[in-house]
Computed example of a mutant assay.
Amino acid sequence: MNRVVVGLQWGDEGKGKVVTYLSRYHDIVVRYSGGANAGHTVNYGTFKVVHHLLPSADFTRNVGVAIGNGVLLDPQVFTKELIELKERFPEYSGDIFISENAHVVLPVHKEVDQRVDEVLKIGTTKRGIGPACADRVMRANVRIAELHDEKKARSLLEKNLSLKSLYNLTFDVEEVLDDLLNFYNVIKGFVVSSIQMKRILEEKSALFEGTQGVLLDLDVGTYPYVTSMNCSSSGVSAGMGFPVKIDETIGVFKAYTTRVGEGPFPTELFGEEGEALRKAGHEYGSTTGRPRRCGWLDLPLLNYAIEVAGVDTLVMTKADVLNGFEKVKVCVRYKDGRELLSLRDLDKKEPVYEAFDGWKSLESKEFDRFVNFIEKETGKPIKYISTGEKIEDIVEV
């Protein structure tokens, strides 16, 4: 059985914990998009692990991991994570596979990212993802496959770095190449072709891990304030390089809403109200440390993401953060009364709220009413509810 887990908001929904919990029911966890701009924090109880590139498998159970061609690999970040994996989980013996068609993020990409965002003001993580994607499309980037042949790698790298003169940036080709080749020596035992990856996954039960969220998807998100890749469920096959059969699509959402970076946010809270929610949820980015913008749950946006991603079942996270709030609000519609069919005019939407009595614990009848209301309004069952930070703090409804 293959399943995919996607975020239904602007990322930071707690997918890492959910994927780690669900991975025990699968042979392998597969990342199909994103790069080191993702930050999935997993609390094992006595320590936390932040995944930027390694999939969020439960490493205490030797679940395998795989990285598809749709993932952008930052050599420094990935090498660091491999070292941390060995240190944190010395007994880990699961398989690790990396598609040879995955592209790398070069140091120059981060420099370009910084300069471009100063103009575009998207609010990126400055991890070089956008520029690396651009070079990928321009056929001027280096893939893992090219690192097998130093001559090919040097040729592509020279072309890539020569383009950066447009930004008045210069890098030493030999220095960058040496770093890339050293990185390849570290990972070459994990590298497989697309055909090999396809055959491996055909023999396994796979859990595909989405990064960011549907509302940040390059095509169906709040463009231009989006990530550079397809992070919705539609990106699975493209991110693997071959058709993938998905048996269940699981959508993860917070009981409220957060966003990092620029872009429209109809239910955003300001002042003391927004700060109270931020403090209660410790809402600071795993990758950047930036304070997240916070607001109430937005049902029109949630239903949009559910339909676009073809979600079958839901997972609610961070409802425990709202424990003790006197009132909890939910945006049930917008003032213009229109069904949300497009995100084009989202910046003009004014929310209409319904207020719910708060709850002191997730065992209370007030919380049950909240859950039942969301299930009714979305038409989808909430299968799991996160009750705290740790992996085991999750219940099946």
Score class of each variant (00 low, 15 high):
residue 346 L to S: 08
residue 232 S to E: 02
residue 255 A to T: 10
residue 33 S to I: 07
residue 179 D to K: 12
residue 283 E to N: 02
residue 367 F to G: 14
residue 181 L to Q: 05
residue 355 A to D: 14
residue 395 V to N: 08
residue 78 F to M: 10
residue 254 K to M: 12
residue 192 V to C: 10
residue 54 L to S: 09
residue 194 S to M: 03
residue 275 E to F: 01
residue 364 S to Y: 00
residue 362 L to I: 13
residue 387 T to R: 09
residue 114 Q to R: 14
residue 19 V to H: 05
residue 172 D to T: 12
residue 155 S to F: 14
residue 351 P to E: 11
residue 296 W to E: 04
residue 300 P to A: 09
residue 320 D to F: 07
residue 22 L to W: 12
residue 9 Q to C: 05
residue 57 A to W: 07
residue 193 S to P: 08
residue 26 H to Y: 15
residue 329 K to N: 10
residue 261 G to E: 02
residue 338 R to C: 07
residue 172 D to V: 03
residue 134 A to S: 13
residue 246 I to Q: 07
residue 209 E to C: 12
residue 166 L to I: 11
residue 267 T to L: 04
residue 241 G to C: 07
residue 216 L to N: 01
residue 241 G to A: 12
residue 222 T to M: 07
residue 225 Y to I: 05
residue 255 A to G: 05
residue 77 V to M: 13
residue 172 D to L: 00
residue 230 N to M: 00
residue 372 N to W: 02
residue 183 F to Q: 00
residue 352 V to L: 15
residue 358 G to A: 06
residue 140 A to T: 14
residue 5 V to G: 04
residue 104 V to A: 06
residue 185 N to W: 01
residue 5 V to M: 11
residue 239 G to E: 05
residue 87 E to I: 10
residue 46 T to D: 15
residue 261 G to H: 04
residue 252 V to D: 04
residue 216 L to S: 01
residue 8 L to T: 04
residue 13 E to T: 02
residue 149 D to L: 00
residue 47 F to M: 04
residue 220 V to G: 00
residue 287 T to R: 09
residue 291 P to V: 03
residue 158 E to D: 04
residue 71 V to S: 11
residue 84 E to L: 12
residue 96 I to R: 02
residue 94 G to L: 10
residue 392 E to Y: 07
residue 6 V to G: 08
residue 39 G to M: 07
residue 235 G to N: 02
residue 175 E to W: 01
residue 66 A to Y: 07
residue 305 A to Y: 00
residue 37 N to R: 06
residue 210 G to I: 00
residue 130 G to S: 01
residue 390 K to M: 09
residue 114 Q to G: 00
residue 108 V to Q: 06
residue 103 H to N: 12
residue 2 N to R: 14
residue 389 E to R: 15
residue 72 L to K: 08
residue 201 L to V: 11
residue 378 T to S: 13
residue 30 V to W: 10
residue 321 V to C: 05
residue 64 G to Y: 03
residue 201 L to N: 13
residue 174 E to S: 15
residue 197 M to C: 09
residue 397 V to C: 13
residue 315 V to H: 04
residue 1 M to H: 15
residue 395 V to Y: 03
residue 85 L to G: 07
residue 15 K to I: 05
residue 236 V to I: 13
residue 45 G to H: 08
residue 11 G to R: 06
residue 216 L to F: 00
residue 28 I to M: 13
residue 179 D to A: 14
residue 92 Y to I: 00
residue 176 V to T: 09
residue 69 N to W: 01
residue 149 D to P: 03
residue 374 I to P: 04
residue 59 F to E: 07
residue 53 L to N: 04
residue 35 G to W: 03
residue 103 H to C: 10
residue 195 I to N: 14
residue 6 V to P: 11
residue 217 D to W: 01
residue 59 F to S: 08
residue 108 V to E: 03
residue 60 T to D: 13
residue 85 L to N: 11
residue 160 N to A: 15
residue 162 S to R: 15
residue 172 D to E: 14
residue 49 V to G: 04
residue 269 L to Y: 11
residue 196 Q to V: 13
residue 182 N to F: 02
residue 250 I to R: 04
residue 49 V to S: 06
residue 163 L to R: 09
residue 200 I to T: 07
residue 55 P to V: 11
residue 92 Y to D: 03
residue 200 I to V: 09
residue 263 G to P: 06
residue 368 D to Y: 09
residue 15 K to H: 08
residue 359 W to L: 09
residue 54 L to Q: 05
residue 296 W to A: 03
residue 203 E to I: 08
residue 233 S to A: 15
residue 36 A to Q: 15
residue 198 K to C: 06
residue 108 V to D: 02
residue 342 S to Q: 01
residue 72 L to D: 05
